[in-house]
Amino acid sequence: MGLLDRGVEIKTPEQIDGMRKAGLVVGRTLELLRGHVRAGITTGELDGIAEDSIRSAGATPSFLGYHGFPASICASVNDEVVHGIPGDRVLAEGDLVSIDCGAITLDDSGRGWHGDSAITVSVGPVPAEVEALMAVTEEAMWRGIAAAHLGGRVTDISHAVERHVRSQGGFGIVEDYTGHGIGSAMHQPPDVPNVGRPGKGPRLVPGLALAVEPMITLGTKETDLLEDDWTVVSTDGSWAAHFEHTFTITTEGTWVLTALDGGEQQLSELGVKFGGR
Rank of each mutant, 00 (worst) to 15 (best):
274 F>W: 15
167 S>G: 09
109 S>C: 03
210 L>E: 02
162 E>G: 06
67 H>W: 11
47 D>V: 10
235 T>V: 13
178 T>K: 12
69 F>V: 13
195 V>L: 05
264 E>K: 15
99 I>E: 04
32 L>N: 09
228 D>W: 08
196 G>Q: 02
246 T>P: 07
221 K>Y: 08
122 S>E: 08
165 V>F: 06
39 A>T: 11
125 P>G: 07
241 A>K: 09
248 T>I: 06
138 E>C: 09
134 M>L: 15
80 E>Y: 05
29 T>A: 11
118 A>G: 10
249 I>N: 04
10 I>S: 03
158 S>C: 05
17 D>V: 10
145 I>Y: 03
1 M>R: 13
187 H>L: 15
251 T>C: 01
12 T>F: 02
99 I>Y: 05
3 L>P: 00
129 E>Y: 13
238 S>A: 13
155 T>R: 05
40 G>Y: 09
31 E>K: 15
130 V>G: 02
98 S>K: 10
269 E>T: 15
110 G>M: 14
204 L>D: 04
119 I>M: 11
177 Y>H: 12
133 L>H: 08
238 S>I: 12
135 A>D: 09
194 N>L: 07
160 A>R: 07
189 P>A: 12
227 E>K: 15
11 K>T: 02
143 R>F: 09
87 G>R: 06
250 T>G: 04
175 E>F: 06
241 A>E: 05
225 L>W: 01
173 I>Y: 00
73 I>K: 01
27 G>M: 14
134 M>S: 08
137 T>D: 02
216 I>P: 06
168 Q>V: 10
263 G>V: 11
42 T>Q: 02
95 D>Q: 13
245 H>K: 14
150 L>D: 00
203 R>S: 12
76 S>Q: 05
199 G>V: 04
248 T>N: 01
111 R>F: 10
50 A>D: 04
253 G>E: 03
214 P>T: 06
166 R>T: 09
265 Q>V: 15
151 G>C: 12
157 I>K: 09
2 G>Q: 14
227 E>Y: 12
199 G>P: 01
192 V>G: 03
272 V>Y: 00
124 G>V: 10
218 L>R: 05
152 G>N: 10
233 V>S: 00
1 M>H: 14
95 D>R: 12
230 W>K: 07
44 G>L: 13
65 G>W: 09
273 K>I: 10
251 T>S: 09
48 G>Y: 03
145 I>Q: 01
72 S>I: 07
216 I>F: 08
36 H>W: 07
200 K>L: 15
109 S>K: 15
74 C>H: 11
249 I>E: 00
210 L>T: 06
169 G>V: 05
192 V>W: 07
192 V>H: 12
200 K>F: 14
40 G>C: 05
95 D>H: 12
171 F>N: 02
265 Q>D: 08
47 D>H: 08
69 F>P: 01
256 V>Y: 06
58 G>R: 10
214 P>K: 09
94 G>E: 02
204 L>G: 08
51 E>K: 14
26 V>T: 14
249 I>P: 03
38 R>W: 06
213 E>T: 12
25 V>N: 06
223 T>R: 05
132 A>Q: 13
178 T>R: 04
175 E>C: 04
8 V>W: 00
198 P>N: 04
113 W>I: 02
250 T>H: 02
165 V>R: 05
156 D>V: 12
34 R>K: 14
263 G>K: 09
195 V>N: 06
212 V>Q: 05
211 A>I: 04
129 E>N: 15
